[in-house]
Amino acid sequence: MKKVFTKTKGLTDVPFSFCPGCTHGIIMRLIAETMEELNIIEDTIGISPVGCAGFSQDFFSCDFVGAAHGRAQAVGIGVKRALPDRVVFTYQGDGDIAAIGTQHAIHSAARGEKITSIMVNNAIFGMTGGQMAPTTLEGMKTKTSPYGRDIESTGFPIDLPKVIANLPGAVYVASVSVDSPKNIAQAKKAIKRAFQVQLAGLGFAFVSVLSTCPTNWGISPVDSLKWLRENMMPIYEMGELKVTEEVKSL
């Protein structure tokens, strides 16, 4: 018998520190497999944020730089501008990129920075124990919206990919999910495309991946996937929101 599924070389042997059932691990596997398949592990520098995704710096096999909360893209731009022929990607939580890091997300796209940004959207601040994030859904209970997020005082969830897609410098924007094998395959394709966009130097590539947070949602890992499908997918526009002609012809 032949081994048909095994851990990609893009990941180290360090066990993931995420909560049981947290789909961060799937997303990182897809990125790591992409790096291996595109043969860029040794040319890539990853930028980790502050938050659950921060530990990614120990799980990927490539070089990594730890950024301050919200600043991963600015740090990544510094690396990319210094080493234009290397591959730079940022791996950020929704709180990191859509709350404190919003201005860097907007301007990275506006400038068409030739980096790849992956946002893990679980509609909550995970690392700090489950507080409301800009992506938290209406009515969703969190530690800082204990009675459910009320639009009146805390506003609407931000669909960052939709915002980024409007900026000319963003040439590839996709919103995907890892809640099912089929969607995982779709997410892998989008992530791979986002890296290929960078390799071709076409502009800013951005993939948002819906993800679960069983611990802070207070739902079992299996039911979390269902909750994501029923509650998050209707709010966040899914699919490839922007694919320029140049990207299509890649």
């Binding site: 081994k3 048909v4 599924f5 851990k7 066990p15 995420f18 691990g25 799937i26």
Partner: peptide
Amino acid sequence: CATVCPDVAIEVYK
């Protein structure tokens, strides 16, 4: 099983 495993904890042989 391996595809959905968040910890890449499953190897599959065929």
